[in-house]
Computed example of a mutant assay.
Amino acid sequence: MSIWLNIFYTPPPSAFVAAMSVISCASLAYSGLSEARGRHLQYSKFWNSGRPSDDAGRTRISSREGMLLLYTPALAAAAASLGVLAGERSLLLGLALLLHFFKRDFEVLFIHRYSGSMMVDTAIPISLGYFLNTVCMIYAQYLTQGGVPEPAVDLKYAGVVLFLVGITGNFYHHYLLSKLREKKGDKRYRIPKGGLFRLVVCPHYLFEILGFVGVSLISQTVFAFSVAAGTVFYLMGRSYATRRWYLSKFQDFPKQVKALIPYVY
Rank of each mutant, 00 (worst) to 15 (best):
D252E: 15
A19W: 05
F212Q: 09
Y142A: 01
V22K: 04
G194V: 05
M67V: 03
I167C: 04
V84T: 12
G147K: 10
R113N: 09
K193F: 01
R243G: 11
F101K: 11
V165Y: 13
R113P: 04
E182M: 05
Y265A: 03
D186L: 10
P13Y: 08
A18Q: 15
A152V: 11
S44Q: 13
P149L: 02
Y43S: 13
R37N: 14
F163A: 10
V227H: 01
A140E: 10
A140K: 03
A152S: 14
G169Q: 06
P151N: 07
S27F: 08
A26N: 09
F8C: 10
M118L: 14
L98G: 10
V84G: 00
L93G: 03
S127D: 05
L206F: 14
L177Y: 10
Y205F: 13
L196R: 01
A86H: 13
K183T: 11
G185H: 04
L85S: 06
Y263P: 03
G38I: 11
L82E: 11
V201D: 06
A26V: 14
M119Y: 13
R243L: 12
E182V: 09
E208K: 08
M20Q: 07
V213E: 12
L70H: 15
T168W: 01
Y240R: 11
Y189I: 00
G166C: 14
K193G: 00
S14M: 06
F225A: 15
Y142P: 02
Y205I: 05
L235C: 05
L82K: 06
I209P: 12
K179I: 04
I7R: 01
R113H: 12
I218E: 02
S219K: 02
E182P: 07
S21Q: 09
Y43W: 14
